[in-house]
Amino acid sequence: MSRIIVSVVVIIAIAAGAFYFLNKPEPTPAERFEAAVQDAGDALSEAAEAAADATTNAVEQATDKAAEMAKQAEKSLNDAAELTSEQLAALQKQAEGLVKSWEEQGALTEEGFNYDKMVKAIEDSTLSDEAKVQLIQILAEIKASPETVAAKIEEFRKLMAQ
């Protein structure tokens, strides 16, 4: 008997539910508008959240890329500085050797110098064109004013040491 009561209660519940859903009134235009506004609000919230996430990701990627580029630039500058230091040291050593050989050969002394021999040695050297021009100009000034030879030799040595 209890099964029959349970079955009847279940049938009544199903019938009541069907009756409610079948007789439920259509939503009013105001209710439809309110539901549409609610749906649109939810969609805007989701879109704003997605846009915020995308913006955050883009900023993080840009920051990471900028940091990586800065590290690469720093490495390149350090490499260039090391290379330049090595090149300068090599040029300075070459210049010192050139001046020393001129002094040993007597081409460069405080009393005088052999202009043609020194110009030829500068032109044949591996110094930069700018350094060659400056050094030859100093030699020409010494040749024009022999009384300034001591000061010009010092200027010449400083230039060669750069």
Rank of each mutant, 00 (worst) to 15 (best):
L91I: 10
V59Q: 10
G112I: 03
A62K: 14
D39M: 00
A30I: 00
S128T: 15
S128R: 13
S125Y: 00
A131K: 15
A81I: 11
I122M: 05
A131Y: 05
A48T: 07
T28W: 02
A80L: 15
S76G: 09
L77T: 09
L108S: 00
E49A: 14
A51V: 06
K75S: 13
L22F: 15
D64I: 13
D116H: 08
Q38L: 00
S76T: 06
E46G: 06
A73G: 03
G106F: 09
V99K: 00
E74A: 05
G106L: 10
S76K: 10
E86C: 00
L83G: 03
I142F: 10
K117F: 02
T109G: 05
D79Q: 14
L98S: 04
D42H: 12
K93D: 08
E123A: 09
A43K: 08
E123W: 08
A81V: 13
A70E: 09
Q92N: 13
L83A: 08
L139W: 07
T63A: 13
V59E: 11
T55Q: 15
A81E: 12
Y115R: 08
E60N: 12
L98C: 03
N114F: 02
A62S: 15
A51W: 04
I136D: 03
K132I: 11
E26C: 12
Q92P: 04
I138G: 05
T56H: 14
G112Y: 01
K93A: 07
N78R: 15
E49G: 15
L77D: 10
A89H: 12
E96Q: 06
A89P: 04
D79R: 11
A90Q: 11
I122C: 03
V59Y: 08
I122A: 04
E104N: 11
E74W: 09
Q105M: 13
Q105N: 15
T84Y: 13
P27E: 07
A66R: 09
D39T: 03
E104W: 02
M118N: 00
A62I: 09
E60K: 12
E82L: 12
S101Q: 10
Q38F: 04
F33S: 01
P29C: 07
Q87F: 00
M69T: 12
K71N: 02
K75M: 08
L108W: 02
W102A: 01
M69C: 09
E49W: 11
S76P: 05
A81F: 13
